[in-house]
Amino acid sequence: MFYPLTLAKLEVGQHLYWQIGNLKLHGQVFLTSWFVIGLLVLVSFLASRNIQRIPSGIQNVMEYALEFIRDLAKNQIGEKEYRPWIPFVGTLFLFIFVSNWSGALVPWKLIHLPAGELAAPTNDINTTVALALLTSLAYFYAGFSKRGLSYFAKYIEPTPILLPINILEDFTKPLSLSFRLFGNILADELVVAVLVLLVPLFVPLPVMILGLFTSAIQALIFATLAAAYIGEAIEGHGHGGEEHE
């Protein structure tokens, strides 16, 4: 296994372990993810508490977010089928987005833990793998529920020769999803941390802003790709190919 790297004072791969029975948990991930979840639930509650026909304030903001998510899902999954997938795709986007931005904007490092340090939940591989596996399950479910056993026909399309590659794709999809998100967020936080260590004033600012940008983009990519996979599974041999950014 990997030993914790030590970059000056920087800690990578240190975890605050919680022990529940035989299970080991990464405490710092759960702490920040609860913060993110709490924030999302609170904002949603405030937005839908008093729904007006003419929206204002937080309702307006959240309606904008919802319209954005709807457009995303509609573009990828299609006009007819996108509605039941809005909660999944939307929660993916919101959770990843708020996680990434909380890692960049909330000064977690000020709170000292016995081990490890607080950061965005998405810079832990467990979170991103969990989200990616859920995405895989989601598109399998979408394909099955829509097309039954004929869903498996996609493995021998366009020719049976591509069978191994098609099967391999089901493994590369969650792998690329999880590692893209994990790598981007971790790298971003590391770059910022290293720069702060080297030049603590002003110089890290552009990188931090770039970090905000990439964080938002990563959330968008994850949600878009998840929606695209679901749309592909529903539609069958349609617009194949991933949209990497």
Partner: peptide, 13 residues
């Protein structure tokens, strides 16, 4: 420990 430490965090998450 380490970066690629997969454990019960995954299913719980």
């Amino acid at each position: 420990g380490g970066l690629f430490d997969l454990d019960a965090t995954l299913p719980l998450m």
